[in-house]
């Protein structure tokens, strides 16, 4: 792999974007390598969660303009589809995926972060979409996921102005869930993810799915979907273990069955 590294820390896979010579700008190769990694991690049952981050002080800048500036429309469609495929793979990944952002998370980089479950950052983080300044627009789902997260008006402001959103501002508008100190960001996020992954993984997966799918449909149908997922929990060993442990006042040992 030329554009990223994958390291396993206990049951968490840490994926680090690595093209430091260009602020980890996203190119076709990075998209393909990420796609391949997420596919492999999906079938690796020892991996309970994924942490996405970037090397050398930045998460990722936008797409590599060098690569795309002479694209024909057909090539552009192909590129956008690769990016959208990756983002939907991350979004539908059956276990938690968190993004830790320091430095720049711009354009395609931000779109990848937006497709994870939520974003955590340190005070150096800066977010933005500069695509309009280059005569194009975000194409990996950013124009759709950003308004669903921060509201339509704010999303328009961010896209139209192309201005950077600071870490503080990102926290205020809900783009980022929590801020951590720069020197401990990775450890703090890793710790949070490990804590998450000590819960019943089956119910986590179901919660993730009903939140994501339910958000797209009307509340009435969505609640019925939740009801059915709730009932399915009672066919699992995790439910027996989780509730048994609670009543016996001990720590549960989940097996994911």
């Amino acid at each position: 792999m030329k554009t990223l590294s994958v390291e396993k820390k206990e049951s968490i896979a840490v994926i680090q974007l690595q093209r430091p010579s260009c602020l980890n700008a996203v190119n076709t190769q990075m998209l393909m390598e990420l796609q391949q990694q997420f596919e492999e991690l999906q079938s690796d049952k020892t991996v309970k969660g994924v942490l996405l981050t970037g090397a050398e002080g930045n998460f990722a800048a936008g797409v590599d303009l060098q690569e795309i500036r002479h694209f024909t429309p057909l090539e552009a469609i192909d590129f956008a589809e690769k990016g959208q495929q990756l983002c939907s793979l991350i979004e539908n990944f059956p276990r938690p995926v968190l993004t830790a952002v320091n430095g720049y998370a711009l354009g395609a980089g931000l779109e990848i972060a937006l497709s994870s479950d939520y974003i955590l950052a340190d005070e150096t983080a800066q977010f933005g979409f500069r695509e309009l300044c280059y005569g194009v627009l975000p194409a990996f789902g950013g124009t759709q996921r950003l308004p669903r997260l921060v509201g339509k008006s704010r999303a328009k402001e961010i896209l139209f102005t192309g201005q950077m959103v600071s870490a503080e501002e990102a926290l205020r508008i809900g783009l980022v869930n929590q801020l951590f100190p720069q020197k401990s960001l990775l450890d703090d996020v890793l710790q949070q993810l490990q804590r998450i992954c000590s819960s019943g993984l089956l119910s986590l997966q179901m919660a993730k799915e009903v939140i994501d799918t339910g958000y797209e449909i009307n509340l009435r149908a969505a609640c019925k979907m939740e009801r059915d997922a709730f009932a399915v929990c009672f066919s699992t060993e995790d439910q027996k273990e989780g509730m048994g442990a609670f009543m016996e006042k001990r720590k549960p040992q989940f097996t994911g069955r």
């Binding site: 919660a207 509340l219 709730f230 509730m243 549960p252």
Partner: peptide
Amino acid sequence: PGAKLGIITGFCGTQKLPR
């Protein structure tokens, strides 16, 4: 804390909370 107990909520929380 449903995940801790191996369940999800069944009273619309997963739908109402994100909204």
